[in-house]
Amino acid sequence: MSERPDLRFNLYLSCRSGLMDYASRLLGSREAAEDVVQEAFLRFVPAGRTQATAPPPRAYLFRIVRNLAVDYLRRRTHETRSKGRNAPDWVEPQPLPSPEETVLFCEDVRRAMDMIAALPPNQRIALEMVRFGGYSVEQVAAHLDLSVPTIYRLVQTAVATITLRLRQDPEAVPPKRGRP
C-alpha cells in the first residue's frame, strides 16, 4: 500500500519551515537551503514506497534534506579546490570585453589598417599576402617577381614600421599614399 502524493505534499508543506531552518544551519546559506529543500520535495513526493518498507515520512524527509546538503557541500568544496589549482586558461570561460574595450579595439584595428594602407605597395602586398592571405613567401616572391630574401625583408620592414608607429604615437595615423 503506497501513500498518495497529496499526503506527501501536505507533509512537505507542514515541515517546510523546519526543513529550511535545518538546511540553512547545515549550509550556512538561505539561498542554498531553498535549492536543497526544493530538490528534497522533488525526491520525496513522487516516491512510491510502501508503508511497510518506508521509514517514517517526516524523518525520511529530513534525511533527504541532510543527504542533499552534504552532497551540495561536497560539490562546493570540490569546485573551490579545482578553482584553486592552476588550471589552464582555456578551462575557464574568458570574460567578455566591456563596450569601451570593444570600441578601443576596433579603433586600434582601424588605425593599424590605415597604417598598412599607407605602406609602399610592395611592402603592403607582401605583408597582406603572407600575414593575412596565407601565402608562402615563395608564392609571394613569384607573384611580385622578387627574390625570397627580398620578400622576407619587405614583410619584416612592414611589421617593424607599423609596430614603431603604433608605439610612437598611437593617435597619429600616417597619410595614405597615392590618394588625395
Rank of each mutant, 00 (worst) to 15 (best):
L96N: 01
Y135H: 13
R74N: 06
R63I: 07
F41C: 11
A118P: 02
Y60D: 13
E138A: 13
G178K: 09
S82R: 04
F105K: 01
R110W: 06
P95Q: 11
A126R: 08
A52K: 08
V140E: 00
S2R: 12
A32Y: 01
A141N: 01
A59S: 15
E34I: 01
P120K: 08
G48M: 12
P95H: 07
E100S: 00
R165E: 15
C106I: 10
M113D: 15
V70Y: 15
V109P: 00
G84D: 09
C15T: 03
A142S: 14
D35S: 10
S136D: 09
M129I: 03
H143E: 14
V137D: 06
A117I: 00
E171D: 09
E31K: 05
L104R: 12
R8H: 13
A54Q: 15
G28A: 04
R63A: 15
L61C: 04
H143F: 08
P99F: 05
Y135V: 05
A33P: 03
A126P: 01
R179F: 07
L68W: 15
D71E: 09
S136F: 01
Q38D: 06
R16M: 05
L61S: 10
R110Y: 07
P149A: 05
C15S: 11
A158K: 10
V148Q: 13
D35I: 01
E107G: 00
P174H: 02
A32W: 02
E31S: 12
P121V: 14
L27D: 04
S2P: 02
Y60Q: 09
R8K: 15
T150H: 03
Q38E: 10
E100P: 01
R165P: 01
V130N: 03
L104A: 06
T161N: 06
V45L: 04
V45R: 04
A40G: 11
E171R: 08
L42G: 14
Q139E: 14
P99H: 09
T161G: 00
L154G: 01
V130R: 13
Y12L: 09
N67D: 06
V159Q: 12
L127G: 07
F44A: 05
R25I: 04
A172Q: 12
T102D: 08
V140Q: 00
A69P: 00
K176F: 04
F62A: 07
R66Y: 09
E138S: 13
L19I: 05
R110Q: 09
Q51F: 03
L19C: 15
A126E: 07
R25G: 05
P5G: 08
P95N: 08
N67R: 10
R167T: 02
A160D: 11
V155K: 01
V140N: 01
L42T: 14
P180Y: 12
G84M: 08
R16Q: 08
A158G: 09
T102A: 08
V137I: 10
P174F: 03
L7F: 11
G84R: 05
R75T: 13
R177W: 03
D108S: 15
R49L: 10
T150L: 02
M1N: 12
E128Q: 11
S24N: 13
L61D: 05
V137E: 07
A158D: 09
T157K: 14
E101D: 05
M1P: 08
L27Y: 01
N86A: 03
S17Q: 12
G28T: 03
D114V: 00
P5D: 10
